[in-house]
Simulated scan of single mutants.
Amino acid sequence: MMEYEYTAFRREVDLHNKCCGGSVWCIRDICGIICAILTWMLILYAEFVVMNVILLPSFYPFYKVINMVIFQTFAFLAFASHLRTMFTDPGAVPKGNATKEMIKQMGFREGQVIFKCPKCCSIKPERAHHCSVCQRCIRKMDHHCPWVNNCVGENNQKYFVLFTFYIAAMSLHSLFLAVNHFMVCIRHDWKECSAYSPPATAVFLLFLSFEALLFAIFTAVMLGTQVQAIWNDETGIEQLKKEEARWVKKSRWKSIQAVFGRFSIGWFSPFAKPTPKSKFESFLYSV
């Protein structure tokens, strides 16, 4: 009976945190899903206005092509970074692994203090925290972000930093284009500056400017807090709770490398994984 309940319990956990037959990590949280879809819609709206209202009707071919390449690059990398953050296991500890057999298998010494999470019945690694939305303990959990419908933790912090960076860059670029195009339209008395009517063009530009300014400020602040946390080797939760550092803090350069890997152009790519962990670490806390 107990074995059946445990199997059903593990199946429920897998369904909550996995999709596509268990091959992809995803959190089935309705609030997070709505926020993620809203993020995609706002990116698509900015792309629609920038391309169809601002750049395509432009009188200057060189200005048009250069800004198209820059904007589309930022938009693609921001979207890819969001997807990688959302669908990457942030560092979940296996639920219900705090059994005598598993403790022996992990090679803990006799009498060694082992922390267990009472909520998910797992062996709690150092610096792990329990997330009530993910229903798991997450290694080096920084926070749970509804905009990416996932926790930001050990395995996906790089992608979240890139997401905030590219959204901030995309927003600033959109704001520049919107303000510049608004001035061009006034200079040309709104003639031939857009394929849409002057009132519609004004509404598009005003909403884009508001969206770009709001997201530029929001993501720039998030980017700053993430960089500060990585720089100080201290997660957002640890800063919030003012936890005393019981772990050996890395140097600033080592802390950055722990998130982004060895320095290369891959730091700026959402498709390049950070330096993989050792086989021993992967064995201890593999999902």
Results as ranks from 00 to 15, higher is better:
Glu3Pro: 00
Tyr6Ala: 05
Phe9Lys: 10
Arg10Pro: 00
Arg10Cys: 07
Glu12Gly: 07
Val13Thr: 11
Val13Glu: 06
His16Ala: 06
Asn17Tyr: 00
Lys18Ser: 09
Gly21Gln: 06
Val24Leu: 12
Ile27Lys: 01
Ile27Leu: 08
Arg28Glu: 04
Cys31Lys: 12
Met41Gln: 11
Leu42Thr: 12
Ile43Asn: 05
Leu44Phe: 14
Ala46Val: 09
Phe48Tyr: 14
Val49Asn: 09
Val49Tyr: 03
Met51Ala: 13
Asn52Arg: 11
Asn52Tyr: 14
Leu55Ser: 06
Leu55Thr: 13
Pro57Thr: 08
Ser58His: 13
Tyr60Trp: 15
Tyr60Gly: 01
Tyr60Ser: 13
Val65Glu: 06
Val69Arg: 02
Phe74Asp: 05
Phe74Thr: 08
Ala75Thr: 15
Phe76Ser: 10
Ala80Leu: 11
His82Ser: 13
Arg84Cys: 11
Phe87Ile: 07
Ala92Met: 12
Ala98Ser: 11
Met102Ser: 12
Lys104Arg: 15
Gln105Cys: 05
Gly107Cys: 05
Arg109Val: 07
Arg109Trp: 01
Glu110Tyr: 10
Gly111Thr: 14
Gln112Asn: 06
Val113Lys: 15
Val113Ile: 15
Ile114Asp: 12
Phe115Asn: 13
Lys116Phe: 15
Lys116Ala: 14
Cys117Ala: 02
Cys117Tyr: 05
Cys117Glu: 09
Pro118Asp: 14
Cys120Val: 04
Pro125Phe: 09
Arg127Tyr: 12
His129Arg: 10
His130Arg: 03
Val133Asn: 07
Gln135Met: 08
Cys137His: 00
Met141Ala: 11
His144Arg: 09
Cys145Trp: 09
Cys145Pro: 04
Trp147Phe: 15
Val152Asn: 07
Tyr159Gln: 04
Tyr159Met: 05
Leu162Asp: 06
Leu162Tyr: 00
Phe163Arg: 03
Thr164Ile: 03
Tyr166Asp: 02
Ile167Arg: 01
Ala169Gly: 14
Met170Cys: 05
His173Gly: 00
Leu177Val: 07
His181Ser: 04
Arg187Thr: 14
His188Thr: 13
Lys191Cys: 06
Lys191Ile: 09
Ser194Glu: 13
Ser197Thr: 15
Pro198Ala: 10
Pro199Gly: 05
Ala200Gly: 04
Ala202Tyr: 04
Ala202Gly: 11
Ser209Asp: 07
Phe210Lys: 04
Phe210Asn: 10
Leu213Thr: 15
Leu213His: 02
Phe215Lys: 01
Val221Glu: 06
Leu223Ser: 03
Leu223Phe: 10
Gln226Trp: 00
Gln226Gly: 04
Ala229Asn: 14
Glu234Ile: 10
Glu234Cys: 14
Thr235Met: 06
Gly236Ala: 07
Gly236His: 08
Lys241Ile: 08
Glu243Gly: 01
Glu244Phe: 08
Ala245Arg: 15
Trp253Gln: 10
Trp253Ser: 11
Lys254Glu: 14
Ile256Asp: 00
Ala258Trp: 01
Phe260Gln: 05
Phe260Ala: 05
Phe260Glu: 03
Ser264Ala: 02
Ile265Lys: 06
Phe268Trp: 12
Phe268Arg: 03
Phe268Pro: 00
Pro270Leu: 03
Pro270His: 00
Phe271Lys: 01
Phe271Glu: 03
Pro274Arg: 07
Thr275Trp: 00
Thr275Tyr: 01
Pro276Trp: 03
Pro276Glu: 03
Lys279Thr: 05
Lys279Leu: 08
Phe280Asp: 11
Glu281Gln: 10
Glu281Ile: 05
